[in-house]
């Protein structure tokens, strides 16, 4: 699913050029390792998104295809209401298709700031596809223990202007090269959102978080859970998937 992919991509992809030393590894080496571990040419993920509303919780199942960092296609599978709803993102454009009305709607501008399916994530959050290295300057600030795992705490400071979150903190497992926690900050340093990874399992030789919780900390509530049900790396995805025609299929 695109959403999960987005978060992970944001966390793992950091390019070269960081000079910061941390024990034996530099910040960029750490992130490269995470990237090697988790990233792939293409990805197909079946996942559940659990949204905690004020009076109930709701699970939305979807299948997401991702190619590189810019293109993704998501088809919703369940519940019945969402079935057949598709979302296509190519570069910086986003279309949503609804089978009930057989219409494709392009979202732009202000609409992108709305929440996706009532979750704590906005469309815009999903649209970000630049590499972390292009936007942030990383530093290792400390080592911390989360649960029984040792982590490096990395601080990322934006080096360009047009980012949603000018500062992030990421905790990365020192052995498995998996992020375990991330915090997103406003310009002023105010914590805005918090992501917690859980249920780390090995799949196709990679360590991967099968559960994530994404929460807007300013609001009351439990946030939104993402649970990976199936994941495949580097599978062949037909070209037509990433075209507008595939929305109506």
């Amino acid at each position: 699913m695109k959403t999960i992919k987005y978060i992970l991509v944001m966390i793992v992809i950091v390019g070269s050029g960081f000079e910061v030393q941390a024990q034996n590894l530099t910040a960029n080496e750490i992130i490269n390792k995470v990237d090697d571990n988790m990233s792939s040419e293409t990805q197909v993920v079946v996942s559940d998104m659990v949204i905690y509303g004020k009076r109930n919780k709701r699970t939305v199942t979807s299948k997401g295809y991702t190619r590189g960092k810019n293109d993704s296609f998501t088809e919703y599978l369940a519940p019945a209401r969402e079935e057949g709803t598709k979302m296509l993102k190519l570069e910086d454009r986003l279309w949503i298709y609804s089978p009930s009305t057989d219409r494709t709607i392009q979202l732009s501008g202000h609409m992108l700031r709305q929440s996706v399916m009532g979750s704590d994530l906005s469309y815009e959050d999903m649209m970000e596809d630049r590499e972390l290295t292009d936007i942030y300057e990383a530093t290792i600030i400390s080592e911390e223990t989360i649960g029984d795992r040792n982590t490096w705490k990395l601080e990322l400071i934006a080096k360009v202007d047009d980012v949603s979150y000018p500062k992030r903190t990421i905790w990365i497992d020192t052995e498995r090269f998996v992020p375990l926690k991330e915090e997103l900050f406003a310009k002023s340093g105010q914590l805005l959102k918090k992501v917690v990874m859980d249920d780390i399992k090995q799949v196709e030789g990679r360590w991967y978080p099968f559960k994530m919780n994404y929460k807007d900390v300013l609001k009351d509530g439990k946030g939104t859970d993402f649970i990976v049900k199936e994941i495949q790396f580097n599978v062949e995805i037909p070209e037509y998937i990433f075209t507008k025609a595939s929305l109506k299929k």
Binding site: E124, D162, S164, A186, K187, Q190, L192, L218
Partner: peptide, 15 residues
Amino acid sequence: VLLRWRDKNGTFDAS
């Protein structure tokens, strides 16, 4: 009271 806004680039800020 905590206010959250975005600057011209869409970057979140809060104070």
